[in-house]
């Protein structure tokens, strides 16, 4: 089976700062790949490179074998296949929950309104927000907003979902509801790349743990193996700080 998302010796600089150093990583279909690591290790940047919100300076990133940086590739078409959920939700404040979810299907896919609304309502039900469809983002709690953001990304039927520290801006009591939605998504076979500080979630839902530090992947492994018995010194050090 081929890899769905491939990072091939990716180099990324911010000015003179080398933030991703020859990072190679593959995410298989239906796999939940959890990227962890200390702040500033480059994990969010890696995720943002995966749908070209950041440009890379070396190497290649491929989705289903198609290089994202290929000048012939239609980046808008590629991005439709990559759902992204942000730390700060980034819901559109001038649109209701339902309008947030249906905007891209209507404007990018050009499907008709009844169909978009039906699918949008279904997705909002799925994330437990059937009653809040016509609410504006500022009438929703952080947890609810983030669940709308997940539904919005799902509305384009992406092949892979990227989660960029999606619970970091939430009050502790709201984290659970968002993780629950992600857990269901993983169980349904969605391919996911998750950057998180929630180690419980990483261990329970992740198929593979990727530890990054200083712009490099320092260790990858199955969750049980990584959390019980890390192979590298860096891994041991990181885990010891969590306790």
């Amino acid at each position: 089976m081929s890899h769905l998302l491939e990072f091939d010796e990716v180099d990324k600089y911010f000015g003179d700062t080398h933030v991703l150093k020859q990072v190679s990583l593959d995410v298989d279909e239906t796999e939940v790949c959890v990227v962890i690591g200390p702040s500033g290790s480059g994990k969010s940047t890696l995720l943002r490179c995966a749908n070209r919100l950041e440009e890379i300076q070396g190497g290649e990133i491929r989705l289903d074998g198609v290089p994202l940086s290929d000048p012939d590739a239609d980046i808008n078409r590629l991005r439709q296949q990559i759902g992204m959920v942000f730390q700060s939700f980034n819901l559109f404040p001038h649109k209701t929950a339902l309008e947030n979810v249906t905007l891209a299907p209507l404007k990018v896919r050009g499907i008709d309104e009844d169909m978009a609304n039906a699918r949008g309502e279904e997705l909002l039900e799925q994330v437990g927000l059937g009653a809040q469809m016509n609410s504006y983002p500022n009438q929703l709690s952080g947890g609810q907003q983030q669940r709308v953001a997940i539904a919005r990304a799902l509305a384009m039927d992406p092949k892979v979902m990227l989660f960029d520290e999606v619970t970091s801006a939430l009050d502790p009591e709201l984290v659970g509801e968002v993780l629950e939605v992600m857990r269901t998504l993983a169980d349904d076979g969605m391919t996911m790349m998750v950057v998180t500080h929630e180690m419980g979630f990483a261990r329970e839902v992740g198929d593979r743990i990727v530890l990054m530090a200083d712009g490099s992947v320092v260790e990858t492994g199955a969750p049980e193996q990584f959390f019980e018995n890390p192979e590298t010194e860096r891994g041991k050090k990181f885990l010891s700080k969590l306790l």
Partner: peptide, 24 residues
């Protein structure tokens, strides 16, 4: 983040401007 969210959904620059950034 508004432009990023719009672009990440596959909307082009002009479309993102028109639908998301300009109304705000």
């Amino acid at each position: 983040g508004q432009m990023e969210a719009a672009r990440s959904l596959g909307m082009g620059y002009v479309q993102s401007m028109r639908e998301v950034v300009i109304p705000q």
